[in-house]
């Protein structure tokens, strides 16, 4: 089977993120970047499915030349080849989904696996748009029944179960009050939640091999997608700093303050 996975370049949450004084964006200097952790989980799941059922994992990223770093990372993990949609400048979720739609129509995978959201702007939209644009079934927030410390996880068993006839996929997904299991027809779009798997490290031999794996370059023009943003970010601002807490002498004062000041009880 053929699986298309995404590898978005995002700011490393461990670097210090600061909003520019004019609110036009975040300060880029000194920032580190990495693959969106939810996408990395998607790459891992794709690799496991391909190992089990045979086939190919193709990784796609959209952005300037620098996103090749994230593509190389996915290739070093074991993805077979990469597609790079070369575009600099702002892209909204509709444009991203439009570009991915064209890539998917070109690649014709059995499944597209994406992170449920990217940890930079946390929109949680692209997977859903993509399924709609393609007219495919969708399963969001894929998770697993066992814990991430389970034997299955240690043995890298895929959590997504493809039917014996290869026409369906069974997905356990996280919902507010527990887990729900969906079965959907392939091709399908699946988005990953945090508790789906533990992504492997890029091994040293994997990193060496990644050097010679092909990265195909495409552009929005070549794909025929109009990426003019329909959404405009007006202003970014940091959350207000937290006010210092207070110490109360006894429980009675605490209850009093909760009742009368905080109006919490």
């Amino acid at each position: 089977m053929k699986i298309l996975v995404t590898a978005k370049r995002v700011e490393d949450p461990e670097s210090k993120i600061k909003v520019k004084p004019d609110g036009s964006g975040i300060v880029q200097e000194g920032l580190k970047y990495k693959i969106n952790p939810f996408d990395e989980i998607g790459v891992e799941e794709g690799l496991r499915l391909a190992a089990k059922h045979g086939g190919e994992v193709v990784v796609v990223s959209i952005g300037g030349k620098e996103v090749q770093e994230q593509l190389r990372h996915a290739l070093a993990m074991g993805a077979h080849r990469a597609v790079w949609v070369n575009h600099t400048g702002t892209l909204d979720q509709l444009a991203l989904a439009g570009l991915l739609q064209k890539v998917a129509e070109k690649e014709k995978p059995d499944m597209v696996i994406l992170g449920k959201q990217s940890i930079d702007d946390d929109q949680n939209q692209v997977g859903q748009y993509l399924a709609e644009f393609l007219g495919w079934s969708q399963a969001t927030f894929a998770s697993k029944v066992e814990s991430l410390e389970s034997e299955q996880e240690k043995n890298k068993v895929p959590a997504l179960q493809v039917g014996a006839d290869g026409k369906t996929v069974r997905v356990v997904r996280e919902v507010d009050n527990g887990l729900a299991t969906l079965e959907c027809a392939l091709p399908a779009v699946v988005t990953t939640d945090l508790r789906l798997n533990l992504p492997r490290y890029a091994s040293l031999p994997g990193i060496m091999k990644a050097k010679s794996k092909p990265i195909e370059e495409l552009t929005p023009e070549k794909l025929g997608v109009d990426v003019t943003p329909k959404i405009q970010v007006l202003k970014m601002s940091s959350p207000p700093p937290r006010k210092a807490g207070i110490k109360v002498p006894d429980v009675a004062t605490l209850v009093d303050k909760l009742r009368n000041e905080a109006k919490a009880v």
Partner: peptide, 13 residues
């Protein structure tokens, strides 16, 4: 670039 990636994997481990 490869050396940086090797280092990253080793540090992660």
């Amino acid at each position: 670039e490869e050396q940086r990636l090797y280092l990253k994997t080793a540090l992660q481990f």
